[in-house]
Design a protein around this nucleic acid. Structure first.
Lengths: 200, 200
DNA sequence: CAGTGTGGTTAGCGGTCGTTAACCTTAGCC
DNA sequence: GGCTAAGGTTAACGACCGCTAACCACACTG
């Protein structure tokens, strides 16, 4: 593993700010001049780093999808043999993501349709594989749950975990670790309830 | 109650199509010409019915928020005295909404920031009151749950229930009544789990 | 110290978009 | 039967936006 301690490159700065702005105001709601201004350069300077506005969004969405999928696969492999542990690890990883990369999570299910056809296909494929990871893990823990229900339950839990962005300003909310624990409990509770009265 | 059986007015047609388009491609991603085309008139003809594109979005968002809040209040009043029934009724009402008015639910937490200041304030206020309804109902059922956690849990369950729009094309999914039952079970399970190990 | 690649700048073009203006048709009414 | 109001039409305007062009400063390198 290459843990990076070096300063972020200009490209990375741009991606971070673009993600934040896209999440706040929507892809079409943000101009290239604003993105440039957010990193201290102005407008067309961005084109030294990216082919265009679309390319930024594409790189963001492909990046998230890949990170989610590879992270998920790693966790499944690490906890292999203990289904409960696999599901817990997936939940934990997703929560870390949702809490630490809010803008990306927001973009992930909001701006997919603004992508070029090929990129959109790629992202959808990665997303689908990630979902399948969860569905398989869930059905190991709850064998009585039919696959369509399992798929719907997984989507619903994604919605639950990704709800963090919609929270107002901090203050009236639990801190990060308490929040993570709360979300984890709720996700497990939701999965358990999904299986009740369903042949289980 | 005035149950309307008459045909929808032109205004209502426009609002319906605008909601669908906004949800699909984002507020800024849809042109007025497209909205017009969707109801069989073209472009500027819309201005006979609305002051502008912003006005359509405003009316949609204020409308949803009001419907959610008044519906919620009615349910709370109807089941008053039985906390469990209140919470169940709120969940049921929200599920009906999420399943039957998908585009509106999508817009509701996605395009709020595109509103004029005054409209945004109004919508936020209505949303806040709706959340408070849920928080109060939840804390009646789970008195051990501190308020910040209850608020976070309510938001998380909204995310869970509103996850329906993100589902791919039908087919590999439970039908409407099964889906409603599944979501209801999961929401109750999530709430129950939120209270565990929390002084309860 | 000339040459070159990197990462900026400003000016401006072409297209799109929301909105307005001006005009037209039809239905209902006195 | 003219008048008016309602609900359309097309043309066009002004603003904005993504992107390109042209130019420039500087750090390295042989």
């Amino acid at each position: 593993m290459t843990t990076r301690t070096d300063a972020p490159t200009r490209r990375e700065q741009i991606l971070r700010e673009a993600a934040r702005l896209f999440a706040e105001r929507g892809f079409h709601g943000v101009g290239v001049d604003e993105i440039g201004a957010a990193v201290g350069i102005s407008g067309p300077g961005l084109y030294r780093h990216f082919a265009g506005k679309d390319a930024m969004l594409a790189e963001l969405l492909v990046g998230i999808s890949e990170r989610l999928l590879t992270g998920g696969r790693r966790r499944v492999a690490e906890a292999a043999g203990d289904p409960e542990a696999v599901l817990d690890s997936l939940v934990e990883g997703h929560i870390d993501f949702a809490l630490d990369d809010r803008p990306l999570i927001t973009l992930h299910d909001r701006e997919l349709d603004r992508l070029r056809d090929s990129d959109r296909k790629l992202v959808r494929q990665l997303q689908r594989q990630y979902v399948e990871l969860w569905v398989a893990a869930l059905r190991e823990v709850r064998p009585g749950l039919p696959e369509p229900s399992a798929r719907a339950a997984v989507h619903a839990v994604f919605g639950l975990l990704n709800s963090t962005p919609h929270l107002g300003r901090p203050g009236a909310l639990p801190g990060r670790t308490a929040m993570a624990a709360l979300l984890h409990r709720m996700a497990r509770g939701a999965f358990a309830a999904a299986a009740e009265g369903q042949g289980e």
